[in-house]
Design a binder for these strands. Structure first.
Length: 426
RNA sequence: GGAGAGGUGGCAGAGUGGUUGAAUGCGGCAGACUCGAAAUCUGUUUUAGGGCAACCUAACGGGGGUUCGAAUCCCCCCCUCUCCGCCA
């Protein structure tokens, strides 16, 4: 959520930054804000008067000893008159507040100053590449879904029977590989100082609103209608919301968390795309990194977070590149985002395998996540950051394709993973 | 699922209609005493909105209601705890 004060005080700056993202207009919210403040002034004056009368009545009853005295009745009358006026103003103001809140919740974060300006993914900026020497030279590699099915470790047909299309079942050593990847990723990040968490996988509406999935993207999430609970679309949501409505001590920061969770997404509006394989499923596994940090450190923490995600790809010797998203391609809550894209031979290009974002105070404001510095008055909002470290299914796809042997039947297991699987080949 | 108890400030814990934004204790902070510390004493210590400001307003799980006036009374919802049932 954007700061209404910031919008009020620097409307042109905010509008210009929103224009870098797309079509957004702050005038409606500004207008409502003016009306609301006017009403608030009137209302609080009336309430002050009403409080005064209440006090007087109490005093008079004590002094006169007669609750029915005419003097007191007169005050009651006056109090009732004010109540009538208030009963008119209060709903109006409340309605305005609700509208303002709704508008604010639907505005995306402002891109950071350093975010490249652009319209869509074509304007994203490649930052660096790593491991080009690991790109397979053999042009006749099987796509991972064909290889996986022939190896008997991926099964899409039976998954559709159990659930639907866009689900996978991992069998045998495929399941073991997925588990090994999760363990490997977590071990690495725990060693780097992240505290491992296993959060709830069902998430309430308030939590999804805080991190920005709601209200705009309800159609992307699976909902359990009877319970105000949604299947988590990413561990970012539960991890950040662990601290919702808290005032932390400055010494508590930074907080580093990593978590493995399954992730559930409806993938509405992507019907034609990536219909085969592990790239786009309704359910996938992911290890997520989340940081809550002091605002002055969030930029450097963001860089470090990206490196922590990159470390996994490097350890697995998978070729990748780092791309900075342009303003038009930024996610709703992000001020600045780096995507990691792994080389996928079946696509003949780099494909997203991690997205690392600095949300600055956007989620913290929605979720009321603040901290207090000893000796300083007031509270400040933390900055939240998140990144995949990594999407496990896509990592499996990248391994199956990039580590495929020329016989078209076997896959070498990355050296870093071999201790976890106790074998060299699939 | 059934029965009961309860949700108050950083924590503990008073408060059942009228200077209670909230006693008291602990913790925190500042000061005094001390060479320094402990102990002791004194003061201080919630958050948010509005206003140039003085200041005003709101909040005792959430939402409604009664009343001149609600932490206190009434209704609905949520959560926690205990016992029973069920279950991994």
């Amino acid at each position: 959520m954007l700061d209404i004060k910031q919008i009020r005080e620097n409307p042109q700056v905010v509008q210009e930054l929103l224009n870098r993202r797309g079509n957004y207009d702050i005038q409606p919210v500004l207008q409502l804000d003016r009306e609301q403040r006017k009403l608030e002034g009137m209302r609080s004056q009336l309430q002050a008067k009403s409080n005064e009368i209440g006090r007087l009545v109490g005093q008079k009853i004590k002094a006169l000893g007669n609750p029915q005295a005419p003097e007191i009745e007169a005050l009651r009358q006056e109090g009732n008159a004010i109540k009538v006026q208030l009963s008119e103003l209060e709903p109006q103001e409340k309605d305005l507040r609700t509208q303002i809140e709704a508008l604010l919740l639907s505005l995306p974060n402002l891109p950071s100053d350093s975010t490249p300006v652009g319209r869509n993914e074509d304007d994203n900026v490649e930052v660096r590449r790593w491991g080009e020497e690991y790109i397979p030279s053999n042009p006749n590699l099987l796509p991972h879904w064909e290889l996986g099915e022939s190896l008997g470790i991926l099964n899409f047909e039976r998954s559709a029977k159990v659930a639907q299309s866009r689900f996978v079942t991992l069998m045998g050593v495929g399941a073991a590989l997925e588990r090994a990847l999760i363990q490997f990723m977590l071990d690495r990040q725990v060693a780097a100082g992240y505290v491992e968490v296993i959060p709830p996988f069902l998430i309430n509406t308030q939590s999804l609103t805080a991190t920005g999935q709601l209200p705009k993207f309800a159609e992307e999430s699976f909902k359990c209608d009877q319970d105000d609970l949604w299947l988590t679309p990413t561990a970012e949501v539960p991890l950040v919301n662990l601290y919702r409505d808290e005032i932390l001590a400055a010494e508590d920061l930074p907080i580093y968390h990593c978590a493995y969770t399954p992730c559930f997404r409806r993938e509405a509006g992507s019907y034609g795309r990536d219909t085969r394989g592990l790239i786009r499923l309704h359910q996938f596994n992911k290890v997520e990194l989340v940081k809550l940090v002091h605002p002055t450190t969030s930029e450097s923490e963001h860089q470090k977070l990206v490196q922590d995600a990159e470390a996994i790809l490097q350890a697995l010797q998978l070729p990748y590149r780092v791309v900075e998203l342009c303003s038009g391609d930024l996610g709703f809550s992000a001020a600045k985002t780096y995507d990691l894209e792994v080389w996928l031979p079946s696509s003949g290009k780099y494909r997203e395998i991690s997205s690392c974002s600095n949300c600055q105070d956007f989620q913290a404001r929605r979720g009321g996540i603040r901290f207090k510095e000893a000796g300083k008055k007031g509270t400040q909002l933390v900055h939240t950051l998140n990144g995949s470290g990594l999407a496990v299914g896509r990592t499996m796809a990248a391994i199956l394709e990039n580590y495929q042997q020329s016989d078209g039947k076997t896959v070498r297991i990355p050296a870093a993973l071999q201790p976890y699987l106790q074998r060299e080949f699939l």
